[in-house]
Amino acid sequence: MSILDKLYEKAKQNPQRVAFPEATNEKMMQAAYETGKDGYIVPILVGDADEIKKLVAERGYDENVFKIVDINEEGYKAELIEKYVALPTSLLKEKALNRRMANPLYYAMVMQAVDEADVTFAGIDNTTGDVLLAGQMIIGMKPGIKTISSIGLCDIPGYEGSEGSLLAVGDSAVCTNPSAEELASIAISACDTVSTLLDWEPRCAMVCYSTLGSGQGELIDKVTEALKIANEQRPDLNIDGEFQLDAAIVPEVAAKKVKRESKVAGKANVVIWPDLNVGNVAVKLIQQFGHANAYGPMLQGFNKIVCDCSRGAPVSEIKGNVVISAVRAAGSKK
């Protein structure tokens, strides 16, 4: 059974409420319908109810699979606004929130913020910037986390790591050149993500072109400072470095290069890149030459689970990311 198959089974055991603000999009509606019909999630279509219902019928879907939320229905909207502005973390007052909720993306996130939904799933009709801005404004950031980032899960044929063929990597999609503080936030968020999604005990390696001082340079200084910050903020997590990639994941190399005790060296299941240049190239290499399946990117750092999928993603990939987001949401409640 593949990792994705296992996550599908996990989702079915505890279906989460997933809000789709791009409800009329054909691929989004199909993904919502198929994952909902099969019992993996409870799909909530957010938008103009008349238009949504018309398209549901035209496309031959059973309307009963969905919960349809009409953004034009003033009564429910007023309830949501009242609950949201009462939150201690609320950044918007009633009038400003009312204006923004004309946009289904903001409406869905307000539902999520007040526990009327567990996940907001978008990214085809909205840009990544749109999703990130709405998420930061409505959902907010986790305490102690200073940046939104991403993590991906690579299933690499022939790789025999501490978690079999699986390796979590980040950030490969969002943060171009993170500062030491931001890099520490990425590492902490990544550990929390794999813990809630996969029930792993995270072993997180912060990598660059040096292992414990074998190289010099500003990039290495940034990584070592990030490591210090991460360990101070979350001493409960196994985050270590700085390591070269082979010292992080290959026990034999770690035995030669890491001459001190480490719970991470040689057996990392999470790898944190120093910047997006490294992260993007590394993932492409893993996919092209390692023939890996890469799942994600999964946004992390928000108070609740927000997903920004690729605009060009096929329905099968969207469904996988919907299920992953739902499992993350269920895990974050523990």
Score class of each variant (00 low, 15 high):
residue 264 V to S: 11
residue 212 L to H: 06
residue 146 K to I: 15
residue 118 D to T: 07
residue 48 D to P: 13
residue 66 F to P: 07
residue 91 L to S: 14
residue 203 R to A: 13
residue 308 D to V: 10
residue 166 L to F: 08
residue 270 V to W: 10
residue 305 I to Q: 15
residue 80 L to F: 06
residue 99 R to Y: 05
residue 195 S to M: 06
residue 23 A to I: 07
residue 301 G to Y: 02
residue 333 K to A: 03
residue 148 I to C: 06
residue 289 F to R: 06
residue 85 V to I: 15
residue 26 E to S: 11
residue 172 S to Q: 05
residue 260 R to S: 10
residue 272 I to F: 09
residue 320 G to F: 00
residue 287 Q to L: 02
residue 238 N to K: 15
residue 269 N to F: 05
residue 280 N to F: 04
residue 226 A to Y: 03
residue 314 P to A: 01
residue 3 I to S: 01
residue 46 V to Y: 04
residue 289 F to T: 02
residue 136 Q to V: 07
residue 58 E to R: 08
residue 128 T to M: 13
residue 58 E to N: 13
residue 84 Y to V: 05
residue 1 M to F: 06
residue 130 D to Q: 09
residue 244 Q to W: 04
residue 156 I to V: 14
residue 65 V to N: 07
residue 323 V to Y: 01
residue 69 V to A: 12
residue 320 G to Y: 01
residue 334 K to V: 03
residue 147 T to C: 09
residue 214 S to R: 10
residue 215 G to E: 12
residue 4 L to V: 15
residue 124 I to T: 12
residue 39 G to Q: 04
residue 272 I to N: 05
residue 120 T to M: 00
residue 163 E to Y: 04
residue 30 Q to F: 05
residue 188 I to L: 11
residue 189 S to N: 11
residue 149 S to A: 14
residue 119 V to F: 05
residue 195 S to N: 14
residue 216 Q to S: 15
residue 216 Q to C: 03
residue 75 G to P: 01
residue 274 P to V: 02
residue 333 K to C: 08
residue 65 V to A: 06
residue 140 G to L: 03
residue 77 K to D: 01
residue 283 V to F: 07
residue 167 L to Q: 00
residue 242 E to S: 08
residue 25 N to F: 02
residue 174 V to L: 12
residue 174 V to P: 00
residue 276 L to F: 03
residue 191 C to R: 11
residue 298 M to W: 11
residue 305 I to M: 11
residue 82 E to V: 02
residue 86 A to H: 13
residue 184 A to S: 10
residue 36 G to Q: 06
residue 175 C to T: 15
residue 60 G to Y: 06
residue 17 R to K: 15
residue 89 T to D: 12
residue 130 D to H: 09
residue 223 V to H: 02
residue 240 D to N: 12
residue 231 N to G: 07
residue 323 V to L: 02
residue 30 Q to E: 15
residue 277 N to T: 03
residue 324 I to D: 01
residue 212 L to P: 12
residue 323 V to A: 00
residue 316 S to E: 15
residue 208 C to K: 04
residue 144 G to C: 03
residue 249 I to Q: 07
residue 84 Y to P: 10
residue 95 K to T: 11
residue 114 V to K: 09
residue 146 K to H: 10
residue 298 M to T: 03
residue 306 V to F: 03
residue 30 Q to D: 14
residue 146 K to M: 08
residue 322 V to L: 08
residue 75 G to F: 11
residue 217 G to N: 06
residue 313 A to K: 04
residue 73 E to R: 13
residue 67 K to V: 15
residue 13 Q to F: 04
residue 307 C to K: 05
residue 152 G to S: 14
residue 291 H to R: 14
residue 179 S to W: 02
residue 160 E to R: 12
residue 157 P to I: 08
residue 37 K to F: 09
residue 225 E to Y: 04
residue 219 L to T: 11
residue 19 A to T: 12
residue 116 E to C: 04
residue 226 A to S: 08
residue 116 E to Q: 09
residue 68 I to L: 04
residue 85 V to R: 02
residue 237 L to C: 12
residue 125 D to W: 01
residue 87 L to I: 10
residue 290 G to F: 01
residue 311 R to C: 05
residue 15 P to R: 09
residue 207 V to A: 08
residue 56 V to Y: 08
residue 263 K to L: 11
residue 100 R to M: 13
residue 109 M to D: 12
residue 156 I to R: 02
residue 82 E to I: 07
residue 71 I to Y: 04
residue 84 Y to Q: 09
residue 255 A to S: 15
residue 204 C to K: 02
residue 290 G to H: 01
residue 220 I to D: 00
